[in-house]
């Protein structure tokens, strides 16, 4: 059986001290290694923060409504995901807008954090 683990947390308002970042990263690396070794990990990524989010909806008349930020309605719940690889946000907006989910609710676009760059 496959499961999706969704990781929620409060976003820090300030950059934490370096040692705190390092301690936290060490935890994440240890977890990542453990889940890989166990053969349970299919995929996993960190996302850029919510200020980088863009939300797309498509109205009944086909008009595309793009908004800055993660603006799901409170009654909307996460229903699925696609991980895509396109050159830039416009490419992501195209796929988000043509996704049926944009018609029935909203599609939030979040850039995946590229680690080790």
């Amino acid at each position: 059986m496959r499961y999706l683990l969704l990781i929620y947390s409060e976003e820090p308002t300030q950059t934490p001290p370096q040692e705190q970042i390092e301690a936290s990263m060490a935890e994440w690396w240890a977890y990542d290694e453990a889940i890989r070794k166990a053969g349970a990990r299919l995929a996993g990524d960190a996302l850029q923060g919510s200020p980088t989010a863009t939300t797309v909806r498509v109205k009944d008349d086909g008009e595309r409504v793009v908004t800055d930020g993660p603006f799901a309605e409170t009654r909307e719940v996460l229903g699925g995901y696609y991980l895509i690889d396109v050159p830039d946000l416009d490419g992501a907006l195209e796929w988000a807008a043509s996704c049926p989910g944009a018609k029935y609710g909203s599609v939030e676009i979040r850039p995946v954090m590229e680690l080790g760059m």
């Binding site: 200020p51 800055d68 050159p87 830039d88 946000l89």
Partner: peptide, 13 residues
């Protein structure tokens, strides 16, 4: 600053 960060991190073309 926030707007430029979004342009950069979300790859607004």
């Amino acid at each position: 600053v926030r707007a430029k960060r979004k342009i950069r991190e979300a790859h607004i073309p």
